[in-house]
Amino acid sequence: MDWDAIISYLPRYKDALLLTVKIGWLGILLAFIIGVLCAAVIHQKIPVLRQITGFYIELFRNTPLLVQLFFLYFALPKVGVRVSPQFCGSLGLGLLGGAYMAETFRSGLENIAPIQSESAQSLGMSKMQAFRYVILPQAVSSSVPGLLANVIFLLKETSVFSTISLMDLMFTAKDLIGMYAKTIECLTLLVVFYLIMLLPVSILGSLVERRLRHAEFGN
């Protein structure tokens, strides 16, 4: 191990991490919004929109992010839609994640038996109250572990960003290996920085999962 080299590489890895985190979290936020909207459309059975949403979910769940990014970044400019690599990364991640998030929310909502809403209403709650105090807490508690799993999945997927010329961790590692041929040092740093990014989310995931189990009623 060449520790001097490692220390001199640190700033570049730090910048790469910050860039990845920035694009990643923007993408995840977008995925969250898309997911909620899509799940609502499907749950409320809105005609036409529902079919479109279904097609979108199937399309993005069945293609790799790398291909989606290539399409957004290299193909769309040919029809006049030009976007920056950063925006492209967030958009691609958001579209991919939206499809996964939608499925998670949908199954969270579906897990709650209709009788719960009916019982709540027969106790004199309004529809809104039943949703707010009976359905939502259960839907959230059953979909949060899935959501956090999606967040980890999406943060891992950011590793392909280097293909659309974003200077993320993979790009930095490959670039430094190419320049100085200190393969071991570069790869070790790569692993360490991915751990810094992903380990907290993973630990949070298992903590939340344990805590939220208490929020389930009945079953």
């Binding site: 950011t158 490959k174 991915y194 751990l195 993973s202």
Partner: peptide
């Protein structure tokens, strides 16, 4: 396996 992106494993 859960935490490391597959691409990192490929590089390693």
């Amino acid at each position: 396996v859960r935490i490391m992106p597959q691409l990192v494993l490929l590089f390693i």
